[in-house]
Each structure stands twice: as structure tokens, then as C-alpha cells.
């Protein structure tokens, strides 16, 4: 196993373990913190794919803004942090079966698809990936329309959120 594969297995194990803990832990604040760890694992995966910019963006936006927002929402609205009652309900057997079937189906489909043999994209010929991304974002042949629409979308999201959350 090469060093890269070893690191990938480590990061993937961390991400999956944190994801399982998010769903199973009864304490909500701890679930939020496990989520932060899982998102951090995703950022690590981005680094292994030579997408360093996306990795830091993941941390800045997802962990720094969205996770903080979620924690605020949890801490401000719940008096009792522990979920009361049992963790599973009566139909948990059927749910586990469906989840396992879905997992098996997805694994089967992915290993048969071209994605199974893809390697991390080789950026050694590109001098500056971030600059290329920037150029693609504003060039008329590439993504300029989504770029401007994204700003309108952010404006709409801001106005919508204020409309929902603001009481005056």
C-alpha cells in the first residue's frame, strides 16, 4: 500500500466513523461536533484529490459557517440536549434491510462504472489550478452565467431567510 493509499484509508475511516457517530449519538451537541469532524474528513479527501482550494473552502464555509449556524440553532432552541426515549423504533429491522440493500446496490453499480478506475486528476500540466478556476468562472464560454446567477441566488437566499426569520 502506498503512502497515499494509507492516508486515504485513514481519512476515509475517520469520515465514516464520524458520520456513524453523528447519527447514533443521543446528545445533539455532540452530534454537531461529530459532524464537524466528518466534514473535516471530507476536506482531507479533497486534498488527496489535488483540490486544495476546495478543501479550504469546505472548512471555511461548511465548518466555519454552516456548522456554526447549526450549532446556534441547536443551542438556542432546545432546553434539553439529550434525546429522550429509545434510539430505534419498531420497524428498525426493515429499515436496516433496505439500507443494506441500497448500500449493496450502490457498491455494485459504482464498481461496474468507469468511476472505479479513475485516478485523482493530474494537475502537473496546469500551472495554477485556482487561476484556471477563476478564469472559467468569468469566461463567456464557460461558467459566467452560473456565476452571476449564483450572486442573484445568494441575494434571494438572504432575502428569503430574513423574511422567514425576522419578526418585525
Amino acid at each position: 500500500m502506498t503512502g497515499l493509499e494509507f492516508v486515504f484509508v485513514l481519512i476515509a475511516a475517520l469520515t465514516l466513523f464520524s458520520a456513524v457517530m453523528v447519527v447514533t449519538t443521543p446528545n445533539m451537541v455532540r452530534a454537531a461536533l461529530w459532524l464537524i469532524l466528518a466534514l473535516f474528513g471530507v476536506a482531507g479527501t479533497f486534498v488527496l484529490l489535488n483540490a486544495a482550494f476546495l478543501a479550504v473552502v469546505q472548512v471555511v464555509v461548511y465548518i466555519g459557517a454552516i456548522a456554526v449556524l447549526m450549532i446556534f440553532a441547536i443551542m438556542l432552541t432546545r432546553k434539553v440536549m439529550k434525546d429522550s426515549g429509545p434510539q430505534t423504533n419498531s420497524t428498525w429491522g426493515l429499515a436496516a434491510l433496505i439500507a443494506a440493500a441500497l448500500f449493496g446496490g450502490l457498491t455494485f453499480a459504482l464498481t461496474r462504472s468507469p468511476a472505479a478506475t479513475l485516478m485523482a486528476p493530474d494537475f502537473s500540466t496546469v500551472s495554477d489550478p485556482v487561476a484556471e478556476l477563476g478564469r472559467a468562472l468569468v469566461s463567456p464560454q464557460a461558467y459566467v452565467i452560473p456565476f452571476e446567477v449564483a450572486s442573484v441566488l445568494l441575494l434571494a437566499a438572504m432575502i428569503g431567510a430574513i423574511y422567514v426569520a425576522w419578526k418585525k
Binding site: A52, A65, V68, V130
Partner: peptide
Amino acid sequence: NLNVAVLYVVAVGAFGVVAVLMAGW
């Protein structure tokens, strides 16, 4: 020598924010 160093600095600042929430909570 990271080529995204400036955003990296902002990203690790985000962990400080999370740590403050952890401490207060």
C-alpha cells in the same frame, strides 16, 4: 508553501470559533 494559504488562515480561524462554542457550552 500552500498555494491557498490566505484562505487556509481563514479556515483555521473557523476552528477557533468552534472551540469557543465548545468551551462555552
